[in-house]
Design a protein around this nucleic acid. Sequence first.
DNA 1: TTGTACGCGTTATCAT
DNA 2: ATGATAACGCGTACAA
Lengths: 345, 345
Amino acid sequence: MFEPTIKDIAKICGVGVSTVSRAINDHPDINSETKEKIMNAIREYGYVPNDSARNLKRVDAKAIAVLVKGIANPFFTSMITVIEQECKKRHYAMELSHIEADENEVDVAQKVVKEKRLRGIIFLGGLFSHSEEKIKKLSVPFVFSTVGSIPENISKKLYSSISVDDRRESARMVNYLIGLGHTKIAILVAEAQEESVGKLRLEGYCDALKVHGIEVNPKLICQTKDELSHFSMENGYLTTKNLLERKEKFTALYAVSDVLAIGARRALYEAGLRVPEDVSLAGYDGLDMADYTVPSLTTMRQPVEEMAKDTTRLLFDVIAKRTKHQHITYEAELLIRESTAKIPE
Amino acid sequence: MFEPTIKDIAKICGVGVSTVSRAINDHPDINSETKEKIMNAIREYGYVPNDSARNLKRVDAKAIAVLVKGIANPFFTSMITVIEQECKKRHYAMELSHIEADENEVDVAQKVVKEKRLRGIIFLGGLFSHSEEKIKKLSVPFVFSTVGSIPENISKKLYSSISVDDRRESARMVNYLIGLGHTKIAILVAEAQEESVGKLRLEGYCDALKVHGIEVNPKLICQTKDELSHFSMENGYLTTKNLLERKEKFTALYAVSDVLAIGARRALYEAGLRVPEDVSLAGYDGLDMADYTVPSLTTMRQPVEEMAKDTTRLLFDVIAKRTKHQHITYEAELLIRESTAKIPE
DNA sequence: TTGTACGCGTTATCAT
DNA sequence: ATGATAACGCGTACAA
């Protein structure tokens, strides 16, 4: 299989390589006839420029990277879709990279920046526990989007961030449940030990209980299993089963993600418990899915579309040096649906 | 921000560039002390090799690409996860690329092959309607995994494929429904006009009805809306609502994907119809999700894990020239769960 | 065991 | 408007 290079095309057309290069890259100073001749040869011989060679020379690659930790989470899939559209509008390419649970996102970022000559990075999900030293090594602007808590020791001038105040919004959800009369509220929490959204949402849960003078019962705090993917229905199902087997009494169950809640709902059903008549069930995230379950799920909706758009906007603003790094926090929206109800007298 | 190159590291360590190169690439002929000294400097100065430059030189890039059409489909997300693990086992990198609905996957593939010097390609989803000419331009082996029907005009020696016989398995599902006594069976179908899995599953539906002497009622064939993502709950929901408004009578509803079925279930619920007492509901794909809904969903399970593993194995076999191209067809598994029941007398 | 020098395919600079 | 040529950062044959 013959793979022509720019030189071959130049030879075929009887022109210099620079002329071919000009044709490919839409440079203004080129005769339109020459250009057409070249483009025809390119089509005929199936020439495709080698991006590796390009990136070696070029400074501005009109591309950004999105680094996702946990692509199985449908919440991220929605974000990615929107980010992709936004990049396209700006005629930028988007490189999507999946980061393994045991990989360090900043190391991967460094590699990707070198490899492609891209202009910026979006980190989606994962934890934020990186040294300022490493962060500084990243030579392009970056945005942390919907990661866990951001430590105080890193200068906020180094990056942008997009997030929901997980602790506060989580407390709001629990407040709502308490307002319905619930006091025995179980919580399904993922990755509670790490600096994750899970931990923050658990803190919000405790906050709300304390404010109302309800003692936190550790037996009602159910941690998802580490062996399984943390944000999966299966994990929600099994963890809830476990809770039910322990016979600890509760009238409401709050899962820190919709995916977990859906698994939990199945476990409740199999135990013969009705939702919401016997147990109120609440989730978090506001996935599309949560609106189609039966009963539909009460949840905290994170404004995905808006967050994804702002994530992209922030990054491009910094790339274009229009603005300094910014930090935006969103309000979540409490969606009251069919899965929660007043506690029976 | 100082970005050291291999030359800088060589200078710092007082050695030649080739020695550094040997250290990075684990070459045998290098003094272990020298190597350690170099590795320390690399860590200290945060040196990351430029992959563009590497790929320019290297012939064997130990990497493959996965090109997905429709990453929002949870079925593909599962496949990707498994493929990723399989690649890791073989110490190969996996490049994940999302293909837009309007892009030609073979063009994208050509670009990606040039860009990275990768050894093979996996096409996930999408349609297969490419000219043999274009296909031949691809200089590396490739596997079509779970795409729609494959036209006869392309030599099977050019590629491998992994698929389920969508038409046959779809007929099996409808047979099962007929066996329960259903004759008025509505179908929810996506992309029926194209050479897609949707079309094949619709054909299977018609096959089964005809075998049993049941006339195909065009009014019970519901096409999802083109404006929305074809495989989404929303589309399943709205299309079913539309069906219900038309007052066409049916006792079973078969959706060509679980995602559509879940949307449909909600529409049925809102119309006051019970599943399975009033309407039997069936899906296709065998997503994890389908096992956690209430009622759990009867579906055709595609053996995701096995298919993903074989996809990878086939590709690597051809890359290693161990085998010729192969074509594997899997059986799906009919999972009978709570959403289907005998038609009431 | 180690270093020098060349070339991979492209773009940018400088002549022409 | 066009062509020759020097980089870009790396791997490797070959020399030492």
